[in-house]
C-alpha cells in the first residue's frame, strides 16, 4: 500500500498526539499497574514482584473500605441531586421566558470556579458553629455537617459500618452547588432543541402541560441524562480536590475517598505500591462506566 502525500501529512498531524497518548495514558497506566504489584512501599523504589499483596491489603483495610462506601453514597446522591435540580431549573426557565438569562447565569457561574475555592467557602458555610447553622438554630436544629460521625442505616460490613455517612451530605451540597450548572446547561440546550411544533401538536391533542413534559419532552431528554450521568460519575468517582480542600479525610474517615487516600498514602506515607493499587481500582471503577458508554456512543455516530 502506498500512501499519498496527503495521507502522510495526516499521519504526521496525528502522530505527536498519538505518541503522547500512547505513552502517557496507556503506557503509564501499565506502569502504575506494575507498581501496584510491586513491593515499593518505602522511600526507595523496589520493583520486585509482590503479587496481589497490595490489593489484598486494601480490601481488608478500614480506610479503603470507608472510602469506597463514601464514594458510593457521594456518587449516588450527587448525581441524583444534579439531575433533579438541573432538570427542574431547566424546565422552570423554559416556562418563564422573562429574565431567564440572568437566572441561568447565576446558576451556571459556580462552574467557572475551582473545587478548591468551593471547598474553602463551603467549609465555612457548613461549619458546625457558624454559617447556615446561624439560621438553622432558630429552628432548633444544629447539624454537625462534615464533622458528624454518624452512619445512617448502618450495618456491619467488612471492618466498617456500611450506610450513609451523614458528613458526606455536606460535601454533596458543595459539589451540587458547583456542578448543577453543568446539567442545567445540558438540559437547556436539549429543551431548545425540541421542536415547538411537537409541543403544539401535543397541545392540540389535548395534552396538559404536565403531560407534555412527562410524555413528550422527558423521553427526548434521556440521551442528555445519560451524558450527565456519565460525566458526573467520572467526576465523583475520582473526586479529590473538593474533599482535600473542604474536609480532609474526616474523623473516622467519614469523608475520605480513594483519591485522597491515594494521595496521602503515596506521597505522604511513601506506600507507593499501595497507592498505585488504589489508583488502579479507581481506574477500574471509572472504566466500568466509561468504556461501555464510549463504545456505545461511537457506534451511534459511525
Amino acid at each position: 500500500m502506498k500512501l499519498t502525500k496527503d495521507q502522510l501529512m495526516a499521519a504526521l498531524f496525528l502522530a505527536p498526539s498519538l505518541l503522547l497518548i500512547a505513552i502517557f495514558v496507556y503506557g503509564f497506566i501499565g506502569w502504575t499497574g506494575w507498581v501496584s504489584v510491586s513491593n515499593w512501599n518505602s522511600l526507595m523504589p523496589d520493583m520486585s514482584f509482590a503479587g496481589l499483596k497490595n490489593y489484598l491489603y486494601l480490601f481488608g483495610d478500614y480506610r479503603f473500605q470507608a472510602g469506597i462506601r463514601n464514594t458510593i453514597f457521594f456518587t449516588v446522591l450527587f448525581i441524583l441531586s444534579v439531575i433533579v435540580l438541573g432538570l427542574s431549573l431547566a424546565i422552570l426557565l423554559d416556562q418563564t421566558k422573562k429574565g431567564n438569562a440572568v437566572f441561568r447565569n447565576i446558576f451556571l457561574f459556580p462552574m467557572a470556579l475551582s473545587f478548591v475555592v468551593t471547598g474553602v467557602v463551603w467549609q465555612w458555610l457548613l461549619h458546625p458553629s457558624t454559617g447556615f447553622n446561624r439560621f438553622l438554630q432558630v429552628f432548633g436544629i444544629q447539624p454537625k455537617w462534615y464533622t458528624d460521625t454518624n452512619i445512617l442505616a448502618g450495618f456491619q460490613w467488612g471492618s466498617i459500618e456500611f450506610g450513609l455517612p451523614v458528613a458526606i451530605i455536606a460535601v454533596v451540597i458543595a459539589a451540587v452547588w458547583q456542578m448543577t450548572g453543568f446539567s442545567l446547561a445540558m438540559y437547556v440546550a436539549g429543551l431548545t432543541g425540541i421542536d415547538e411544533e411537537l409541543r403544539e401538536a401535543a397541545r392540540i391533542d389535548g395534552a396538559t402541560e404536565f403531560q407534555i413534559y412527562r410524555k413528550v419532552i422527558l423521553p427526548m431528554l434521556t440521551p442528555i441524562t445519560m451524558s450527565v450521568i456519565i460525566i458526573m460519575a467520572h467526576i465523583s468517582l475520582k473526586i479529590f480536590d473538593l474533599i482535600y480542600a473542604m474536609t480532609g479525610s474526616g474523623a473516622n474517615f467519614v469523608t475520605d475517598v480513594p483519591g485522597v487516600y491515594m494521595f496521602e498514602t503515596t506521597f505522604r506515607g511513601n506506600y507507593y505500591a499501595n497507592g498505585a493499587a488504589i489508583a488502579m481500582i479507581m481506574l477500574i471503577l471509572v472504566a466500568v462506566f466509561i468504556v461501555p458508554y464510549l463504545i456505545h456512543s461511537r457506534r451511534g455516530t459511525s
Partner: peptide
C-alpha cells in the same frame, strides 16, 4: 474511530492512575 475513542478515554481516567510514573 477506534483511535478517536482511544484518545477520548484519556479524558476520563482518574489522573491518580498515571501520577506515580
Amino acid at each position: 474511530e477506534v483511535i478517536f475513542t482511544m484518545i477520548l478515554f484519556g479524558m476520563f481516567i482518574p489522573y491518580q492512575s498515571i501520577l506515580i510514573p
